[in-house]
Design a protein around this nucleic acid. Sequence first.
DNA 1: TGCCGTCTCCTTACGCCATAAAGTAACGTC
DNA 2: GACGTTACTTTATGGCGTAAGGAGACGGCA
Lengths: 266, 266
Amino acid sequence: MVVFAGQGDPRRSMALLWRDERPGGARTRQWPGPKPALSVEVIVRAGIAVADAEGMAALSMRAVGERLGRTAMALYTYVPGKSELVDLMYDQVLAELPHDYDPAAGWRAAVTSWAEDTWEFYLRHPWVLQVSQARPVLGPHEYRALETLLRLLYATGLDSAELRRVVGTLVHVVRGAARTVAESRVAAASTGVSDEDWWLARSGMLEEVVPDFAERFPLLVRLETEGAAPVTDDSVPYLERQARATFEGGLAVVLDGVEAAIRRAR
Amino acid sequence: MVVFAGQGDPRRSMALLWRDERPGGARTRQWPGPKPALSVEVIVRAGIAVADAEGMAALSMRAVGERLGRTAMALYTYVPGKSELVDLMYDQVLAELPHDYDPAAGWRAAVTSWAEDTWEFYLRHPWVLQVSQARPVLGPHEYRALETLLRLLYATGLDSAELRRVVGTLVHVVRGAARTVAESRVAAASTGVSDEDWWLARSGMLEEVVPDFAERFPLLVRLETEGAAPVTDDSVPYLERQARATFEGGLAVVLDGVEAAIRRAR
DNA sequence: TGCCGTCTCCTTACGCCATAAAGTAACGTC
DNA sequence: GACGTTACTTTATGGCGTAAGGAGACGGCA
């Protein structure tokens, strides 16, 4: 389930995201009526807790309400709908990303640290990868995160046109690799079947149903048998080890490409 | 909505994917009872048609059944459930990918053609990007597509360990950029709001709610104003033009990285 | 003090979804 | 012509987001 952002009233969404405190933005005075027991903050945190623990598929208005001892409908007093709640969760959780990278260590080291932090962030909050990027949420923490990455990249001396391409590529490589791990964890959690068990069952079937596999896909078999990295920690599931290698290797490939661009620009 | 693959009985799934014709695999003899009016093939094609036309979110058993003049439950005679249907749709549609790349033109040209074809394929079938890659479908056409890419990459002379990293990176870059376009089209279709209108509404709000934007995010503003590529075809929506540039630029960056690896390996 | 308007939160209801269970009717074999 | 198997339908269950309407809490004012 990809979740799409910002479907509703843009004014309301933006006011919520940026915690607009101008008169008329958020509520200012306390009016008659019962004291609010909840708040946007509390609801957003509860949503994050549900998504962290049970995944995006388990994030329902009912589930969030229940976690707060309320019904689903109680949330609609604070938040226009589920789509906006996801936007707020997304921007809130992005606040975790660090911003203090040392430019003195050189751009490559700094970008590598950034990638490492971002990778770990995605694994901490896998559901974030299911928030659509097509129409960005446009919240403060998302902008701040992008600004931080741009600071590291402008240190390469490349011009804006060149950087546009690099930014997207970096983000795609980190997200792509993290997505593999994230989805595999979701699959393991929701089906109760580990990567190993899943693969064991499938590969057995595969051999049985496709006896001529090795002849039909020789290069695949070659890559499979030759390229494997040595297993340093077998507590990490197979697919996750592979994804980690793709992440590290992919990052190196992209950074090599950036270095080539720098040399060309000189 | 990300759709997860292969939840059910592995034997049944594999037999369906590989169209197993060994005795006991698929049905062999015609038994008593009414003639089947449908078939796995017909259902899979109807599913693809629905997903192409209305997106993954609109793909329901009801919708597929309706397109065939049947109820949702009729499909369950042929297919164990929705998850398996999506697997079959996925592998079927992958059959469209070409395999005949000219190695004589050099690996870089060949990989560029591959990327271009894959990009177009994703735009033709955007819903494919929502099928989870964590636990692959393991169908014949998916394997064939991977084998094709590997053929192009082994032509670089790099060893398997090196190629493992390159493969994942290439795939992530193409998929990542295509995903942006795909999601933006889905958003436009499902909300009826174009990219332009959406951005107009948001950017207006943003200026109003965050008057100090330029001071808080100077590099973002710099990238936005400086880096834009000249508009050659304004019939293509803004976000799509950007994604296309990210795709082309990202591919170039990655291929530069591969060339660096080749030089190192010599 | 009591009323009123406004607020929070609840219950109920609608139309979606996947799919389990059970029923109906078509058909090949005997 | 009866029987067992099969294709497909109907019905039902338990999920979802959220619209609509109602109950009760509370500040301000008479």
